[in-house]
Write a protein that binds this DNA or RNA. Structure first.
Lengths: 185, 185
DNA sequence: TCGTCATGAGACACATATGTCTCGTATGGT
DNA sequence: ACCATACGAGACATATGTGTCTCATGACGA
């Protein structure tokens, strides 16, 4: 017995991440069109705009978190961990973009969780500093910013068709690791 | 005889760049409040939302272009040129953000000009590659993306209060130059 | 001091986006 | 083949944002 078609829901979600990244002011009608779905159907899945945004924030957080955790599960060094996290982040860049730019607005709780994950990142950066992976004279906050924004840069490159996700992630990793290099490298 | 107060107009423009960067869906009422002006006054300066966005796009393009041109006027090497351009870009980051994320939408013509300026940037990057400043194996498109996104990273750091514009720009420059380093450095 | 004019506040009409509903259709499970 | 139900299309009411107008106020220059 088929309840709500998962295909439809997924199509809406995927279209939403891409559309709202391109046009944050897009209407629900625009979204329905982009998802190839009727406007009424959109409301069957998500009662209203706030609920949709909250759901997107939650989904984005879960998927991003899981992707990074899975990717870095068997990393033995901070270097390997950051490299794998970068690849996972690029693959989930649409989610991270949403969280960074609509997250707090959409759902305060998810926004707080995202902030907490950024804090974790900064703690890992500090530990990596201890191992000489990052230059101590470079502020941790800057390294975190670079990590996030190079992810977006890679995503942009992918969307423009000038690189595959893997190629873009490799470039991001190269720039990240070389651009913030510490004494032990 | 005082015509339209430039103070008011400038307050609106400045508030608009900051507000629309934080909340792209903000209403004109929100903008008026943020700028500390009445909603009617906003309409006296800019007839409607599309006109406001067009004006912002035009202003952003002019100010960014002039700032970069002035800063790099007496640069003798590509290295110095890129470094000065980075500082100028960070100072004008709110303008660059608007152009990158609302520019085409706001005004097709300005959008085209912005794209042209990015093309110029890529040409300069290619020339700098010839001098060994950038690694030849790194795609020019990636270097351009990094330039833009490190600017945003620096702006973010400034807004969070964790660095002054100068400090942030220095960090961005360091990461940019080290992260994309060519054989001659 | 006086007059001009930009402004803020608020009322108003209008446009667009949002949310609900109905109905006919198609799809998938039984 | 039958039935349940998710769906698209479209009509409709409502909410929110947008744009216009009026009027009182205050600042500035003459």
């Amino acid at each position: 017995m088929t309840k709500i078609r998962l295909d439809t829901r997924d199509a809406i979600i995927e279209a939403a991440f891409l559309l709202f990244a391109e046009q944050p002011t897009a209407s629900l009608g625009d979204l329905a069109k982009r998802a190839g779905v009727g406007r009424a159907t959109l409301h069957r899945h998500f009662p209203g705009r706030p609920e949709l945004m909250r759901a997107l924030a939650k989904i984005a957080m879960e998927e991003l978190d899981q992707a990074v955790k899975e990717a870095t599960a068997d990393a033995e060094t901070f270097e390997e961990g950051f490299r794998l996290a970068m690849h996972a982040s690029v693959a989930m860049a649409s989610r991270q973009w949403f969280l960074a730019h609509q997250g707090v607005d959409a759902d305060e709780e998810v926004g707080a969780i995202y902030q907490a994950s950024l804090k974790e990142l900064r703690e890992d950066i500090d530990k990596a500093k201890d191992e000489g992976f990052f230059d101590r004279s470079i502020p941790t906050a800057w390294i975190a910013e670079v990590h996030e924004n190079l992810t977006f840069a890679a995503w942009s490159l992918v969307r423009s068709g000038e690189a595959t996700p893997k190629q873009a992630a490799d470039l991001a990793w190269h720039t990240f690791s070389q651009g913030l290099k510490g004494p032990n490298r």
